[in-house]
Amino acid sequence: MQEDQPIVLKIENIHKRYGETEVLKGVSFTVKRGETKVIIGPSGSGKSTLLRCINQLTIPDQGRVWLEDEEVTHIKKDINLFRQKIGMVFQDFNLFDHLTALRNVEIGLIKVKGMNKKQARERAYNELLRVGLKDQANLYPAQLSGGQKQRVSIARALAMDPSVILFDEPTSALDPELIGEVLEVIKNLALSGMTMVVVTHEMGFARSVANEIIFIENGMILDQGSPYDLFINPKHERTKKFLYKITELYGKSKDE
């Protein structure tokens, strides 16, 4: 269904080096509207760095990023305008600790988008409703469970009306019994047509939701294709091995 959709995000030849180590060695891919792209790969393969290079929280050494025909990496463009449109959900949530759930969601609307307080509050409340947290609106992050925190952070990203949301291992810091509630929310977003790039180790989720899976190792894309291509018919022996190992480790049927 995404075949004839416009391209929302285009990443071209991203390189990033930290001292001696080249973390990313020329990664390119595109994401179409409504597509869910899942990035998998072993720890240290550069997946998180790649996501951060997209919204320039990490500045790539080389390579370019486009968001809807506009170049994010263009030197003269205001990066903050792009970041408003690129949602990000972090592994360790990074909720603002001094604000309630509701205020976490509305602060971007007020301070960045300049929305008036009443409208922002209403919008924030609706986003919390959407992730199933209306009763927690007035609690502080320290009073929420991990799964609830992550859902607030998803609501915070959603409130900004982003063109694409980047998920950086959204369930990796969660207790096993809390993973489901977060995946459920992300899955519903995928179904509702949100454009997303998700770094994850949840293979069941990847299989059931991804339009395309990208396998990254040593800073390069080793394999990419539909879940069917990768799980049933991988091109590389290495992909097969990784998928076998990780599926065994995390279990395969959480989402099936």
């Binding site: 919204n55 929280l57 903050n80 305008l81 792009f82 970041r83 408003q84 690129i86 949602g87 990000m88 972090f90 360790d92 990074n94 909720l95 603002f96 600790d97 602060i107 971007g108 301070k111 960045v112 988008k113 952070s153 915070r156 900004m160």
Partner: peptide, 17 residues
């Protein structure tokens, strides 16, 4: 924690904001 600054910037806030 550095994550607070990162999350704020990811929302589109300037460093100052």
């Amino acid at each position: 924690k550095n994550g607070q600054m990162m999350a704020a910037q990811a929302l589109g806030m300037s460093r100052m904001q």
